[in-house]
Amino acid sequence: MIPLSVLDLAPVTVGSTPAQTFANTLDLARAAEGLGYRRYWLAEHHNMPGIASAATAVLIGHVAGGTKTIRVGAGGVMLPNHAPLQVAEQFGTLASLYPDRIDLGLGRAPGTDQAAARALRRYYQNAEEFPADVVELLRYFEPAEPGQAVQAVPGAGVAVEAWILGSSLFGARLAAALGLPYAFASHFAPDQLDAAVRAYRDGFRPSARLDRPHVMLALNVVAADSDEEAGRLFTTQQQAFANLRRGRPGLVPPPLASAAAINDYCSPSEKAGVDQALACAVVGSPDTVRRGVQDFIARHRPDELMFTANIFDHAARVRSFELAWQACAAA
């Protein structure tokens, strides 16, 4: 079985609070660690009421401090929002506290809307700045040299596993050129999946950090005792995407009465857009999940998979990751 990991979108559900979300996050991380998942990643988003992971490094510390062995990281930190030195200091601190357990995935999107991007007070002229910022950031993790004017303290000489995240050829080519592992956001932007993976593998240049290409793909996986129940649980994610496309992101909604009810919630054009965005999804009973994950692996040949499941009820969400692990382990 290839390594499996967890992407937690830190959902704030209707009727809940960020404080409860953080308790749920640690509970899920501990469950994932006990099952054998390799990584537990959290993603930076801003100005989104239904996602509580804006202070990503702080939440990573919360999870790493409450677990023992699972790798914990950012999937990712949106570098346009930050000075590279600050990110190096934050993750150098985390890796000093939790050695050999911290991952740093880097993305070039702001992870928010334009108003919030301006409020974050860091401005990009164009995408060409992202590669230079990545190189600068990685340099801060190298051992400090005599006379070096600016050092990351802590950070210099600290081992942090760095990844490039992406949903297009841009990130794939950058990861290949820098010799870094690459994580593709197929869970919400699958259109260029095959082209990006091919570009990354074909263009990969070995580096001191990585000697061969390494691809992790994200996959929506919702598992329950029956296909019908899993489909019903999945309507939470479908509604959330429809709401986002309508320009009304809010708290994570409860599921609809049945999987078919999403056709009444969405217009035909909205439903088509949701289906396209969530095309990389395996939803169903353990047998359905096992077959679906096997088919996805056979088609795309990832080195790792990262499961995400935006399920309203926390117990059902934990159970989904349990069933998904068991289904894959039995394959």
Score class of each variant (00 low, 15 high):
3 P>T: 06
5 S>E: 09
8 D>L: 07
13 T>H: 03
19 A>P: 03
30 R>A: 03
35 L>Y: 14
36 G>T: 02
39 R>K: 10
46 H>R: 03
54 A>L: 05
58 V>R: 04
59 L>H: 13
61 G>P: 01
62 H>K: 11
67 T>I: 05
72 V>W: 11
73 G>D: 13
74 A>F: 07
78 M>N: 07
81 N>L: 09
87 V>F: 07
94 L>M: 12
99 P>H: 14
107 G>F: 15
107 G>K: 13
110 P>K: 05
119 A>R: 13
124 Y>A: 03
127 A>W: 08
130 F>G: 01
137 L>D: 14
139 R>H: 08
140 Y>Q: 07
141 F>Q: 02
143 P>K: 05
144 A>R: 11
146 P>M: 12
147 G>I: 15
151 Q>N: 08
153 V>K: 01
159 A>T: 15
164 I>P: 00
167 S>D: 09
169 L>S: 08
171 G>L: 00
176 A>C: 01
194 D>F: 00
205 R>C: 02
210 L>W: 08
211 D>S: 12
214 H>S: 13
218 A>G: 15
221 V>F: 13
227 D>E: 06
234 F>H: 07
239 Q>P: 01
239 Q>G: 00
243 N>K: 09
244 L>E: 01
257 A>Y: 15
258 S>Q: 11
267 S>Q: 07
269 S>F: 09
269 S>V: 15
273 G>C: 05
277 A>I: 04
277 A>C: 10
278 L>C: 13
288 T>P: 01
289 V>D: 12
292 G>Q: 04
296 F>G: 05
299 R>D: 03
312 F>N: 00
318 V>N: 09
321 F>R: 00
325 W>Y: 14
325 W>D: 06
328 C>I: 06
331 A>N: 04
